[in-house]
Design a protein around this nucleic acid. Structure first.
Lengths: 338, 338
DNA sequence: GTGAAAGCGCTAACAT
DNA sequence: ATGTTAGCGCTTTCAC
């Protein structure tokens, strides 16, 4: 199909070794022959074969990315930042999608290993000792993001726990004391990695403790039917004055339902999300939420991987700053109402 | 690092050839030796090296994807559907992002060629004879999506033209005659592929003709400052009763600005977008728009590529069905107002 | 049914 | 400064 280095050698009347020196800026070559080779290479449209190169060097200059999907804008931005940064430092990106399926994830990783990627950036859905062993057996650097697998594998993310905890104290400062926390369900599949979801819930509990807010199991809703449950609570005794959702999509769905039922936000109830997804730009009232430094997470994941590949120091945990984005969905709780 | 087929051969006391027959279900092998080899392969955690395999077979079982970004949810969904379908048929996905930069795009394609991908799915930003020649010189099947490069390269998309044209007649049925069309600007960079944008604008013009709506250049706004211009028109003589935007983002931005200025949608003006992006789910009033079968586009792109690779028949143009999504942003034009 | 050997396109170590 | 050679891990052809 294409011209090989061998063909080039013949065309230039030199040996393959010389061709290699010319093409790869290696020392020990006459500048004239080098120029001649480079010219005929361009002329003949010589394209190097990375596969063959990789076979001998053992490096593919490719990093594998394993995420749930790129369907949501969140991962879209993440993958964009990873691809951009990777290209910047001369690496390629191999994208594989797990669709939050544990078996798929293992397959993705195995595929990447077969393709001899130099490293893997993983947003894991698996967890547990078997998975630890599996990752350990790869003999390829892995950096986990957003969900943590264990304390031995590099992890880059935010402090989900203190983020929610801060939200609670923010609400407390607005005199809210009856707060509902809506969490993505954890328990359904016990083998699934729910690190971030768990940390966020823990942050709620801790935040209530430090803010002297008394809670019980009724303050946490962890059910796919959360909308129905919340709406019931709103018309029951002692309705909540504020609701925190473990992610923005839940908050948006809830906002839609609440508005539909005639509740005003934030007058009747305050609402807070998590993630600061881009959809929020066009929603009214503006949803107060926590923003993740997505681009930084992508960039740092590449940095970490390169550090490990190059044998440089890399902290096991790299925690980036989150930020409370204040919009219009939280109000002061009016004590006189009581 | 890992076990090779050679190591396996030694461990089993057979030759490499036999190993190969066992591993790849090739005929001419004793079932017993085969089983023995398969077992020790598992035991030793043998992982085949795709790179080496590709070097000799000439096929990488990988398809390259070149899109603007995965930052927007539109491409996110597209890439998800491509990756899913590709994996289904045993292919890998190599994702490269152009950021709508013509030079980047060429680099992306060249990179993919160096990596010996078996085919490329391309949402092009380049166009013109030079690019035609460039693509032709690749000697690798290319399928273009959404933007067309030329009539010789496979293309998969929708009929943008008739989609907008149908919107016009839909508005005409609602008695709208003074319609504004807001287009993404075409002229700024003449080397940029604006196929879809151009087709949509043409659809507006054609639609007005068939619907007996008289238009002139004032009916088309093609300016980055479209918001300012539209708002001026709204308070000027003969304000439009309906506005069509060439994409949903423009429509959403416009909706935000109109609402902010106190205009009611659709009472004061009707608004229509294009693309049916997911952001629309949480916007009020619901935006009437055209939906693209994104998943089908991805799936068909893979199909087309495989057809070409396998030497099967593949139509040069594969047009999928669009759909008018009616929500709440279009009303009947009240003639009595006049 | 199995083994031996050549070669895919490249790099790297050793000669000259 | 240039040429030669031996692999990287695999498939494939041809012997036996």
């Amino acid at each position: 199909m294409g011209i090989t280095a061998n063909d080039l050698a013949k065309a230039c009347g030199v040996s393959r070794g010389t061709i290699d020196r010319a093409l790869n800026n290696r020392p020990g070559i006459n500048p004239e022959t080098k120029e001649k080779i480079l010219n005929t290479a361009k002329e003949l449209e010589y394209k190097p074969d990375f596969l063959a190169k990789s076979l001998v060097t053992g490096k593919t200059m490719t990093i594998g990315v394993v995420v749930f999907d790129v369907y949501t804008r969140f991962f879209g931005r993440l993958v964009t930042s990873i691809e951009t940064k990777a290209k910047e430092v001369g690496y390629f990106t191999y994208l594989t999608l797990t669709n939050k399926n544990c078996n798929e994830e293992k397959k993705c990783i195995e595929h990447l290993i077969e393709r001899k990627v130099d490293g893997i950036i993983l947003c894991p859905i698996n967890k547990g000792p078997d998975f630890d062993k599996f990752l350990d057996s790869l003999h390829v650097p892995v950096v986990t993001i957003l969900n943590k697998v264990n304390n031995d594998i590099e992890y880059i993310g935010i402090n989900d726990e203190s983020a929610v905890s801060e939200v609670v104290s923010y609400l407390k400062n607005g005199f809210h004391e009856n707060i509902l926390y809506v969490s993505a369900p954890r328990s359904s599949k016990s083998d699934v990695n729910m690190y971030a979801v768990e940390r966020r819930l823990q942050g709620f509990i801790d935040g209530c403790n430090t803010s002297d807010i008394v809670i019980n199991e009724k303050n946490v809703i962890e059910d796919v039917d959360y909308i129905k449950i919340v709406l019931e609570r709103m018309v029951g005794d002692n309705p909540p004055s504020a609701i925190i959702c473990s992610n923005d999509i839940y908050a948006l769905e809830l906002m839609k339902a609440l508005k539909h039922k005639g509740f005003k936000i934030p007058e009747d109830v305050s609402l807070i999300g998590f993630d600061n997804i881009d959809e929020l730009d066009y929603v009214e009232p503006g949803l107060t939420t926590i923003s993740m430094p997505i681009d930084q997470i992508g960039t740092q994941a590449i940095n970490a991987l390169l550090n490990i590949i190059d044998g440089e120091v890399q902290p096991l945990e790299f925690i980036l700053k989150h930020k409370l984005i204040v919009r219009d969905s939280v109000g002061l709780y009016d004590k006189r109402k009581i």
